[in-house]
Amino acid sequence: MNIFRLAGDMTHLISILVLLLKIYATKSCSGISLKTQELYALVFLTRYLDLLTDFISIYNTVMKLVFIGSSLAIVWCMRRHRVVRRSYDKELDTFRHYFLIAATFALAVLVYEKFTFREILWAFSIYLEAVAILPQLVMLQRSGNVDNLTGKYVFFLGAYRAFYILNWIYRYFTEARFTRWIACVSGLVQTALYADFFYYYFISWKNNAKLKLPA
């Protein structure tokens, strides 16, 4: 475990806490894409199948439970909570995310580490996580203005992936046989997707203006 990896996991955790804060503090999920949250729940459920079979460390197990639990709680909240679900902008969240699931699953069947059930699902979860933010980014561009907490949520999600890239660079130079091409390439694609968001986020922060994404 290196500092970059820990920083990455912590920013990932912070992003989820910021989202939970937004939903519980404002009792609203306006501006949040339910499709992205469903994709993240699917990512965690298909990636952490080893939760019950492989014990890596207490930290690893606890974080997996937190990620699975929080992502399912957010999806449940946006679908079922009688107050929160009324603020879901269904007409803005129109990305056809089933295509993302089909495309990433097809890719996982073609490009994998080992052709086993768990490894195919692991590769699927890696590819799916790379594109899971798309419905959310599209929704932000549609809604034009981004409220403060939602902007921070996406920012921390991007920061988490950026730390993971530093973690892979660090491990590449410090561990003999560290080759994790699927995760590295997919992680690079994922972080690149945030690049334009980061750019506009930085501009709005510098001008101390409200974050506006070009339509």
Partner: peptide, 10 residues
Amino acid sequence: FSEGKYHDEL
């Protein structure tokens, strides 16, 4: 942390 297992990252 006992690293080294294959998918040791989150």
